[in-house]
Amino acid sequence: MTTATTTANPLAGAAGAGKPFTLIRHSAALAKRSLLKTMRTPEALIDVTLQPVIFLLLFTYVFGGAIAGSQSAYLRYLLPGILAQTIAMSATAIGVNMNTDISKGVFDRFRSLPIARSAPLVGAVLADFVRYALVAVITLGVGYAMGFRIATDPLRAGAGLLVAATFALALSWVSVFIGMLARTPGAVQGFMFLLVLPLSFGSSTFVQANTLPGWLQAFVNVNPITHLAGLSRSLFLGGPVAGHFFWTAGWIIGLTAVFMPLALRAYGRKV
């Protein structure tokens, strides 16, 4: 009963919140918390686990023959795109999660502790990278069972995953920005869905752009997901890389340049 002393200890946590190692340790602790939450509410993972699997199965076996002539040919076309797109789009959850923390007062708990202001944000991003790895393992595993094989080499395939993760990071800024502005987690979710839906289906992930009407091709050809999927395809299966790479890099730089300052400013106001 009396063992829990509460006398002032000025050293408790006061030490160097500015040091990078401290930031990494705090962020890792917060990332672990985020992953624990994910494990406890597995339904929150559906978009990054079940969804790519269902898309793979559905599109390959239902539409594959009609779209590409054979299921195996379509799987080759589809899988790298689905993989890149799912990783990219799973970044939208970060804003929802942060908004939930703010509305529940959990964020205030973190803010009342002597940790770097950026630690909750960095922690959320770190946890997301673990989720991206999960997407990659699940999608490639299911794909492998369905007959998909990487035609290049592990290095280039790994580079494909890395680009997708980098694009996801850029898109995270959009999500964080919306997450800081919106009143409820549901509103963030709704807005991000509106953003994600046309980007994913108005791309070359599922069908080749030249099968589409001209006006839609115009959109598909500038859509970052088209180029991300194209780049992923080239890195997994071989083919020209440069064009898709420059488009994707341009989008990553553009999104980051516009939304990182906006998101950090909105975040700073909340922190």
Partner: peptide, 23 residues
């Protein structure tokens, strides 16, 4: 109401997280 614990985490996990954040 100033600062809440995380409802999805256990009591122990919540306490450990704060301990870790306090170095």
């Amino acid at each position: 109401q100033y600062a809440s614990v995380d409802e999805d985490l256990t009591g122990l996990e919540n306490m450990e997280l704060i301990g870790r954040l306090l170095d």
